[in-house]
Design a protein around this nucleic acid. Sequence first.
DNA 1: CAAGAGATGTAATATCGCAACATATGGACT
DNA 2: AGTCCATATGTTGCGATATTACATCTCTTG
Lengths: 165, 165
Amino acid sequence: MTASPTPTAALAFAHHDHAHCVGEVLARAEAASLARGARLTPVRRRTLEILLESHRAMGAYDMLDRLAAEGFGKQPPVAYRALDFLVEQGFAHRINRLNAFTACIHPGEDHAAAFLICRACNAVAEAPAARVRAALDAAGAEIGFTVERATVEALGLCPTCRTAA
Amino acid sequence: MTASPTPTAALAFAHHDHAHCVGEVLARAEAASLARGARLTPVRRRTLEILLESHRAMGAYDMLDRLAAEGFGKQPPVAYRALDFLVEQGFAHRINRLNAFTACIHPGEDHAAAFLICRACNAVAEAPAARVRAALDAAGAEIGFTVERATVEALGLCPTCRTAA
DNA sequence: CAAGAGATGTAATATCGCAACATATGGACT
DNA sequence: AGTCCATATGTTGCGATATTACATCTCTTG
Ligand SMILES: [Zn+2]
Ligand SMILES: [Zn+2]
Ligand SMILES: [Zn+2]
Ligand SMILES: [Zn+2]
């Protein structure tokens, strides 16, 4: 266990000490919740854990199945509310293209993210998108548009699937 | 859903000779269809016209209502198929964030687009996104990811609404 | 004309997401 | 302690979005 680096986008497509990265992110989410007075309740915490463990983008109904199997509520709002909370707190992201959610790899920090979705294996990586965001801000500025929130989702091939093909 | 795209991104948020811009774009789509052997049939053509005339992002079911009222089929696939065709041909774009579709302002050309969505008036502008795309390609390349298709959607304030506020 | 491809239409169903309401839980305050 | 209130959790029911499967029609091509 060297240092304790922020999980990087590259990790999403590679093997790694997953249990460790789950614990790391979860601990950060807990700290951030505490710091800002948000309540990381059992359902919410478990929802984040499941997202982290699956290490993929998950649909709300997939999450609902998991939660229901563990004794939480069985109706859609249970999953949607927990997921919405995580998104609001910056602990998870919504991937519009997939109607799905994915855990954030650096929860609590303010950051622009781009999502790289492998069309072959469905892995989703969260990449830093500061430069993408800057280019988008500039494109908006040219016509007087002020960008507040951005959705950037790329479909393509991850290194592994690219090699395989 | 209330939005509005046009020939240049700047025009999207301003008044202009709309009838002319509709004709212009439609003519280009026709030429492109002819050139590549795609069949711009009556439903498809009418769907594109409606998109252009409405000058907004439209949901599939809104489009279906319009088409049904004009004597075309009344079932969802009628709208979805026509819209899918237009998207495939590059005559329209899907705005994932809105579950809606909008006419492309330069149909047939190969281009990277970013969509600027005003959160106040729901107008949608299609902005050139070559630089955004380049930045995204670079972000992917850093971890060996090959970007094939990108979805870039920004939420913010258009010039008009910004001034009003 | 016959055969096949592609387009259009319908019915039925799958998937995604939310509003409304009831109940429970946990502090804050007498 | 007990009351009050905000928040969270659970439910029913519904609305919006999207697709599959199949029937029909229309072109084109030999
Ligand atoms: Zn993130
Ligand atoms: Zn892959
Ligand atoms: Zn376009
Ligand atoms: Zn506006």
